[in-house]
């Protein structure tokens, strides 16, 4: 029983990271109805930016804030420069551009920072809490997840810009008719996604170590979480991310062992897509063929 509880709690902690990645995916999905395959590499690249700042002597939270801001700007730039030209292209073209972006970010990171792994600091003190069930870092990650979710909720619910972004995602034509610059709302969505992804990267790097391929598996679980919770619904995506984290831990401990983690994610993704494409809390998102 104790072991089980331990698995659940630490699953919730990793799930928190998946939840943040899922949130980032939702940002772009809501705005453009696209799934950003390069989300993981964007987060990885942001984490390297944070590493550079810390390496240059910036205090952790200063580097954290700087990285989030810089990632936000980079996300907007990517939308404007890379994604905008294929805005109305067929899905295949858009997916190919995403993959191109993924590959470029991965290789540029490898080029600049090499492929050797680096350690990345945690802002939280070492040691464990709750009678050893959780490390302080894991607890901190959960707090950060909830913080990000709360901030996003406040932003979308109570600010005019947040309302405009929701409107632009829902009905671009009507949005333009009331004077909302829809193109910029999409770019903002990318900026937010990049900033949120950066948080995920900085939270996971102390656990998995920093290297250009660190996000691949995490992105996959982020996908699974977002799909499970409903990829158009931020709260659902967070719930999905947490659930997937727990599922991963339990299946690792009691079913298939940790060596098949990614296969579990594959099965989850295909399963959700086939059985309940709108996720548990989402509106219908897949047009059946």
């Amino acid at each position: 029983m104790e072991a089980f509880l331990h698995q659940v709690l630490s699953g919730l902690a990793t799930g928190g990271i998946y939840a943040i990645v899922a949130l980032a995916l939702v940002m772009i999905y809501q705005a453009t109805h696209l799934v950003n395959f390069a989300q993981g590499e964007m987060a990885m690249f942001s984490t390297y930016l944070a590493w550079t700042m810390i390496d240059a002597g910036l205090p952790y939270w200063g580097a954290f804030a700087g990285t989030v801001a810089l990632s936000f700007a980079l996300g907007i730039a990517i939308e404007r420069i890379v994604i905008r030209p294929v805005g109305n292209a067929p899905v295949l073209a858009v997916v190919i551009v995403f993959i191109g972006l993924l590959v470029i970010l991965n290789s540029v990171a490898g080029w600049i920072y090499t492929y050797t792994i680096k350690s990345f600091p945690s802002p939280f003190p070492g040691g464990s809490v709750l009678g050893g069930y959780l490390s302080r870092h894991e607890l901190g990650v959960m707090g950060v997840t909830l913080g990000v979710l709360l901030l996003l909720f406040l932003f979308f619910r109570f600010t005019p810009l947040g309302l405009a972004m929701r409107a632009a995602a829902q009905n671009p034509v009507s949005s333009r008719l009331v004077g909302i610059r829809v193109g910029w709302m999409l770019a903002l969505g990318w900026g937010l996604a990049a900033a949120i992804g950066a948080v995920a990267g900085m939270m996971v790097a102390p656990i998995v170590f920093l290297d250009p391929n660190m996000m691949a598996g995490i992105l996959l679980y982020g996908f699974a979480g977002a799909l499970l919770g409903g990829i158009d619904n931020p709260a659902g995506a967070v719930a999905g991310g947490l659930a997937v984290g727990v599922l991963e831990n339990l299946s690792g401990a009691y079913l298939v062992g940790t060596e098949l983690k990614l296969t579990v994610a594959l099965v989850l993704i295909v399963g959700v897509l086939v059985v309940r494409p709108s996720g548990l809390f989402g509106r219908v998102l897949v047009n059946r063929v």
Binding site: L163, V173, S174, V178, I180
Partner: peptide, 26 residues
């Protein structure tokens, strides 16, 4: 120039008040 389009163009998933706030967005 305010345009009430065919099909009305309401933001169906938003509340009445949010629709009106969007009208005053600019």
């Amino acid at each position: 120039i305010a345009h009430v389009p065919d099909g009305r163009g309401t933001f169906v998933h938003l509340s009445v008040e949010e629709n009106l706030r969007l009208g005053a967005y600019t």
